[in-house]
């Protein structure tokens, strides 16, 4: 009986540790929601900043982040999905496949600031794209490529082998099989998994510091070669470099709330879609 009481106490402590972590997450989110909600109104979301960000809105930063994310998707999604199709449908256990997998793992572990240096070296300077949306998106695309590949491969794996065998038995070629019998069932999973990578791209600051971001740009970017304002960079500057850091607190909170809503909104959509598709396709 004595052991039982001891067990219960220890289980209680383990539970406490878990709930402590959860409590801190909830605290951070609530703090930003409660303090940020007051700053958010139509003007804040739709006007340009004035007086070095002390007044006005964050419209160009929202648009800038959306531009960066859209171009990043356009670059990384096709490449990532095609890589996953190769790995799951075509690849055999060869040396080449092994190296590809090693490269993906390596890429997933590269610190975001190193991606920033890389983007500066290759896109901004060597390819002469300058500090621009294009340089920033290419850098972000390299960063989220592993996430997209890994989650797309998971989705392809979950399509049962019999789907492919049935198609081959009817005389279909490999590509016909992939296109008609594998992709239609895998694409929802591939997309939702990829959304998680996209959420990460929207919130990252370090890779765009020297490749794309400007604290203030007087108009919306006109082409992919323009610099761009971005929500995470805007928050960083407001919170650390702004001369009146304490006076602009509401604007900082408002920016943080918009950023967090955008990123977590993207992630929550992905999590919901994932559970929806898991229920829809049961084999």
């Amino acid at each position: 009986m004595k052991i039982k009481v001891q067990d219960l106490i220890i289980f209680g402590l383990i539970r406490l540790a878990t709930y402590f972590v959860v409590f801190i997450i909830a605290y951070i989110l609530l703090d930003i929601i409660v303090n940020g909600i007051g700053a958010i109104n139509w003007e804040f979301l739709t006007t340009f900043p004035r007086k070095g960000g002390s007044e006005g809105g964050i419209f160009p930063a929202i648009v800038g982040t959306l531009y960066l994310v859209l171009l990043t998707i356009a670059i990384a999604l096709p490449l990532g999905m095609a890589s996953a199709i190769y790995l799951n449908e075509y690849a055999k256990q060869t040396r080449f496949t092994h190296i590809v997998r090693l490269a993906i793992i390596t890429l997933a572990g590269v610190p975001s600031i190193v991606f920033g240096l890389f983007g500066l070296g290759i896109f901004v300077i060597f390819l002469k794209f300058g500090t621009s949306i294009l340089s920033g998106s290419l850098t972000l695309a390299c960063m989220i490529l592993p996430t997209i590949i890994v989650s797309s491969e998971e989705a392809l794996k979950s399509v049962p082998m019999q789907f492919r065998e049935a198609s081959y038995a009817l005389g279909a070629t490999k590509w016909q099989t992939i296109r008609k019998n594998v992709l239609p069932y895998a694409i929802p999973g591939m997309l939702t998994g990829s959304i998680l990578g996209i959420g990460r791209a929207a919130g990252e600051t370090a890779p765009i510091l020297f490749t794309a971001a400007a604290f203030f740009f007087p108009r919306l970017p006109g082409s992919v070669f323009d610099q761009v304002m971005a929500l995470p960079y805007h928050l960083y500057v407001l919170a650390t470099q702004h001369p009146g850091m304490d006076e602009v607190r509401p604007i900082q909170y408002g920016t943080a709330l918009v950023l967090i809503s955008l990123v977590l909104g993207i992630n929550i959509i992905a999590i919901f879609l994932r559970s929806y598709f898991i229920r829809k396709y049961k084999w």
């Binding site: 703090d31 930003i32 919170a239 967090i260």
Partner: peptide, 24 residues
């Protein structure tokens, strides 16, 4: 209930965590 919350933590941008560190 807990697993998605913890996944959510992984999604909070680092700049927001830093902001929280400064103010709170």
């Amino acid at each position: 209930m807990l697993k998605p919350l913890i996944e959510l933590l992984a999604g909070i941008p680092s700049v927001v965590i830093g902001f929280f560190g400064i103010i709170a």
